[in-house]
Design a protein around this nucleic acid. Sequence first.
DNA 1: TCTGGGGTCCTAGGACCC
DNA 2: TCTGGGGTCCTAGGACCC
Length: 371
Amino acid sequence: LHGARAWCEHVFVSRSAPRLILHADLDAFFASVEQRDDPGLRGRPVSVGGGVVMAASYEARARGVRSAMGGGRARRLCPDLVVVRPRFDAYVEASRAVFAVLDRFAPRVERGSIDEGFLDVTDVVAWPDVGAHAAALRAAVRAEVGLPISVGVGPSKVVAKVASGMAKPDGLLVVEPDRELAFLHPLDVGRIWGIGPASAQKLHRSGIRTVGDAARCGDAALVAVLGRSAGRRLDAIAHGREFQRVQTARRRRSYGAQRALGSRGRTLTHEEIAGTLEGLVDRIGRRMTGRGDAGRTVVLRLRFGDFTRATRSRSLPRATADPAALASVARTLLNDARPVIASRGLTLVGITITGLDREDDGQLVLDLGLS
DNA sequence: TCTGGGGTCCTAGGACCC
DNA sequence: TCTGGGGTCCTAGGACCC
C-alpha cells in the first residue's frame, strides 16, 4: 500500500500540473541520414524507398512528394527524384547517437519513436532560459551527429509536439506558458496529436473545426463524438489541462511482422500463404528469443484488395517464443480465416504476438466516484 | 494518393466466477 | 427465483502514429 500510495502521488502530481517540455523531432530523418552520408545527395530531391516513399527530403517535399506515397506517383511529380534503398542499421545508429545527446539535456527523456523524443526539463531549467537550452540542444545534435532537428517547447507534451511540427524544418518554436490556449485554439482539431483523419472528419461533421470550437462545446459533446477516452482527452487539451507524463522507460507490448503481397496475393494458394506466414513467425521468434521475451496470444492480420482488414486470434495456455509452436497456431488461425480470404482477395498477411510474459505486468485502478 | 513495415491504445460483447 | 456488486479472460475491430 505504501508503494501504491507513492506511485499515485507521483502520477497525480506529474499529471495535474504544467511542466516544461521539449519535443525534439529529426527532420526528414531517413532522408537526412542519406544526405549526410552521401554528399552527392545534398541539395537534391531524395526518397528513401522506391515502392512506397518512407521518407522524402525537403527538396522532394517542395515538389509534392510525401511519405507513404506510392513510388509511381512520386516519380511523376518529381522526375529527377533520387531513390535510395533504406539502410535501417544506419538509422538505428543515428537515432542512438541523437538520444545520447538528448539525455545530456534533460534528466527525463522519453523515446517517442526512432526520430523523436520528449524531454522534461521542469526541474533543471528556469523558464526564461528554456529557449537557449533548446537552441543549444539543436546545435549539439547538428555538431555531433550531423543532422537537422526541430524543437518545440510548451507546458505539455501535446503542445510541444504541435510546436515542433510548426517549427519545421530545422527550427525552434517556444510556446509561452500563458499563451498556450491562444496558440492551440485557432488550430484545426486534426492538428492535435492523436486526432487522425477519421476523428477529424467526425468532429468537422459535428461543426467542431478548431480546438477553440472543441473547448466551447464541452466534454459531453466530445465524448459523444469520439468516445470516452479520446473525447475527454481532447476536452482536457482544449482547456490546457492535459499533462501526460514523460515516460522514460516504456515496455514493449507486442512483436509483429507482416508482408504485403500486392495484387498477386489474390491468387496465392492456401499452402503458399501458410509458407509466407511461417517465414514471418520465424522472424518474430528470433527477435523475441534475442530479447528473452515470450508471448501468449497470436494474432493473424489480414488485409484485402478493398483495404478492409480482419484479424483472428488465439491465446495459448502459456507464453512461448518457439517458432514451431507459434507456426502451428498461425496455421489454425489461417484455416479459421479461409472463408474470409476466399471472398475478399488477400493483399497482406501479418502476425502479431501479444500477451508478453512479464512478472511486473499489472495495473492499479483507482476508483474515484466523482459526481 | 491506391498504399510498406513496425508499433500503441481503446471499445465492446461474451463467457465465466464469487 | 431474481438479483447486486465485484471481478477475470478472450476475441474482434478500429483509429492512430512514425
